[in-house]
Design a protein around this nucleic acid. Sequence first.
DNA 1: GATGAATGAGACTTCATTCAT
DNA 2: AATGAATGAAGTCTCATTCAT
Lengths: 209, 209, 209, 209
Amino acid sequence: MQYLKDEVKNRILGSALAEFKSMGYSDASMRKIAKDARVALGNVYHYYTNKQELFNALVGSVYDRLITSIQEINRIGLKDANEYQFMPKSDETGYYGINELVSTLLGICKEHNIELLILLDKSKGCKSKYEDTKQDLIDMLDEVLRDKMLRNLKDSQIEVRNPYIVYILSASFIEGLCNILRKYENGSEVKLLVDELITIFFKDIASRF
Amino acid sequence: MQYLKDEVKNRILGSALAEFKSMGYSDASMRKIAKDARVALGNVYHYYTNKQELFNALVGSVYDRLITSIQEINRIGLKDANEYQFMPKSDETGYYGINELVSTLLGICKEHNIELLILLDKSKGCKSKYEDTKQDLIDMLDEVLRDKMLRNLKDSQIEVRNPYIVYILSASFIEGLCNILRKYENGSEVKLLVDELITIFFKDIASRF
Amino acid sequence: MQYLKDEVKNRILGSALAEFKSMGYSDASMRKIAKDARVALGNVYHYYTNKQELFNALVGSVYDRLITSIQEINRIGLKDANEYQFMPKSDETGYYGINELVSTLLGICKEHNIELLILLDKSKGCKSKYEDTKQDLIDMLDEVLRDKMLRNLKDSQIEVRNPYIVYILSASFIEGLCNILRKYENGSEVKLLVDELITIFFKDIASRF
Amino acid sequence: MQYLKDEVKNRILGSALAEFKSMGYSDASMRKIAKDARVALGNVYHYYTNKQELFNALVGSVYDRLITSIQEINRIGLKDANEYQFMPKSDETGYYGINELVSTLLGICKEHNIELLILLDKSKGCKSKYEDTKQDLIDMLDEVLRDKMLRNLKDSQIEVRNPYIVYILSASFIEGLCNILRKYENGSEVKLLVDELITIFFKDIASRF
DNA sequence: GATGAATGAGACTTCATTCAT
DNA sequence: AATGAATGAAGTCTCATTCAT
């Protein structure tokens, strides 16, 4: 029976993944999820307490992995920032910690491309921590960039009039990531595009301020 | 009574603006709009036939203005594209027609910042032309950039592996605009930030491919 | 001011007449009545307490006149019935009291054709005595016919298996009247058609049982 | 569960039948239907998509059967009419095709008396083909009678002043049918009364013009 | 008297969730 | 475990009636 159970569970998860992806959390229908999974509606509730739990089952681990990485990068970033005066980083090679973030995201994408997209772009209305994932990601990138990029610019005597431009840049970059995820489910093409995106966004960035 | 009428109308519009902004079209509640406007539910329908009409009253004129500009820019852009072989544009000065688009958006922003944001980011589910505004804007920018930027790059012997990167860039830029709108309701600060955003995105862009 | 008042009142009544006729009581809209009368909605309620009162103002006198006649005919009919054994009526000339009913109806029609139609056919949902007018009329006709026609038939040795057929005949006849009223607003054509209808229904009726 | 389902379905249908019969389509309340069926409101929508579908479930098959017959009779009637000059029908035996119509109606009545009544008399406002059933029936009868009866009268040198009298007769007859349906739910009594009604309406009709 | 904005109950309908089998 | 019927709250919208001006 354990075998059957897992098989049903996976059908539900697969069906839910598709529904959440195409409809978003709020407009996703439990009925449709059950139907597409060829499972009775009530049975979905045997496996998952409610819509939120089902959503959690799909994106929870991806969320945890992502948040952990974010915090880790933030922690290291902060440390680096403290050491900054002794060891300025080149903007050419390191892009201020973005690589770490991106490699985390790419790692997640390999197997959980859609879950990541749902988390970032389809979680509106789910009334839980997940709803803020995209914002958290943007904030984290913003923070890292402020710590590092702004210091670099300051060293180069370049004045940044309104630091909110960094936030906007972060948000735009994350949106770029989302669009790549929307278009490509295949990991390798994602990687190529993300690399291009990083270059376009951050190469020689100091010269554009 | 005329005074009262306008006052109530404005309360409804204000309440609706806030509700649509925070909830999006689909999740916005007519009940809540009425309540926040301190007006009986039925009275909202005295002023606006239905939810769609209320939405239309908020964003309709902004939409018309925006679409007109988009079509105008596309028309001119197409003409330029046809003349392209004789007179290549510099990417430094013109930024490929983005300035025209942005000046339109800035004009709208001066007085209808939030309406524009709703149109671009909160219209999902409204089942009308408004629903696609953001996509239309991105597509238009994508088209302009393909026409002009890709030709410039080709002339410079720079090969673009996957032209979808242009679309991603367009979407990211529009997202940047949205974020500026989200943050600043004041027109002049918006203008400064948008100018910075254009520079960061498009200055020397050829060198980053 | 009295002049104005009557003028407005008449506009309301005229508008209401048209609305009740085309929509029936339940589906008639007070808003439309006010609008068509070029009168503010609230003002309708100055002249008439509510929808029922407005309906009453239109059809009340017609109803009273009709009911009075019905009762009168019933009373006489009953008297005739009691005298019946001494003075049998011919079915050819008298049609069992139908002429009296019809002449009442025709009298009403001359000036209140539409009111009569509304009373008979458009009063559903008004939750008052008016709602049953048609039924009352049918019942009255049924009663008269039972008193007289059935006795005549019995005298002629004709057995009527199920006396309910008399009720059905009455209802059909009244329906015929309603259709004439629906089609013709002009009194003289109504009269001609009603006479034909009486003939078709009641001439030689004994021979058709 | 299958038992339960049918039982509930029947309760809903029964409750709806009663509500539509007494209130008519427009004034029928889904809440009341649910309540009288001892079922949650939402559950009614589990069985029937909406009010119209519920109405359709009640009267749809009856409507189809009726319309099919009407068209069939019209088709045959037309053929007869074309052959008329060579073979005039007696009004005594055939009653101009009414028998065919009536036998159809009687067949329907045996099991779907109330549904037929609702279709003919309570469908106002349902915004579908059903709304015109009674009118269709009257028109069909009117057409048949004009084709045949009026020709017969003409042959007999009887002049019909206003042919609308035929329409009135048709409508009255249909109303008679409706009244029989209203009174008797039992099929055999219906048949007897309808036969009487036909005789009273159409026997020797030429002599009454 | 006159205006029309304002009210609120009730209409149909949807859907996440619960429950009886 | 599995089913899908059943529930009920909340959604949008309508309309007779009331109320402030």
